[in-house]
């Protein structure tokens, strides 16, 4: 649970949230379009079945830099709405190149925390950083607007099936 204490009033502040999985995407190799899926198989300690960063597959843009904490990546749908609102950029869920698009999940607060994505248990390892090559792939100037809100990298502690519509919950 995310608790802080407001020092002036000594009131405990709790960040309460329940989110939902809106889109699921994978791609088998760097640069290829992401494909929408109704469900994904998450394999503990390894990654997403058939995705480019699945350990052993290593066909992603960053595969030359293997990273244990990048087994699955998440992205806030609210960022897509903000890109439209603040920069008039239409970015579709398949274009941000993260695997899971969620609604109502404060991803930036979750680094170091565990949470449930449907029946799977994830541990957030670090914030994703945008990559310049996404501008080349999408033809859209999104590198700058995505700084600090480019998603979350996670490790899979407990695998299973994740479906569109699944709940996302804190695991405190």
């Amino acid at each position: 649970m995310l608790d802080t204490l407001d020092s002036k009033t000594a009131t405990p502040v709790t960040l309460a949230w329940t989110g939902v999985v809106r889109h699921l995407h994978i791609t088998p190799r760097a640069f290829l379009p992401m494909r929408a899926m109704a469900e994904l198989q998450l394999i503990a300690g390894k990654g997403i079945d058939s995705d480019r960063y699945m350990i052993g597959r290593e066909e992603g843009f960053y595969s030359s830099k293997p990273e244990e904490g990048r087994q699955v990546t998440l992205f806030e749908i609210e960022t897509l709405l903000a890109l439209k609102r603040d920069h008039n950029i239409d970015l579709a869920p398949e274009e941000h190149r993260r695997n899971v698009t969620v609604a109502g999940v404060p991803l930036t607060h979750l680094v170091g925390q565990k949470f449930w994505l449907g029946e799977t248990l994830l541990e957030a390892t670090r914030l994703s950083i945008p990559c310049r090559h996404i501008e080349e792939i999408t033809g859209k100037a999104i590198f700058d607007p995505l700084i600090n809100r480019s998603g979350l990298n996670c490790k899979i502690l407990q695998g299973g099936t994740v479906r569109v519509g699944d709940a996302v919950r804190n695991a405190a």
């Binding site: 760097a30 640069f31 290829l32 595969s63 030359s64």
Partner: peptide, 8 residues
């Protein structure tokens, strides 16, 4: 390993 820079 060098980064992947082309579409296979």
């Amino acid at each position: 390993t060098l980064p992947i820079t082309t579409v296979k």
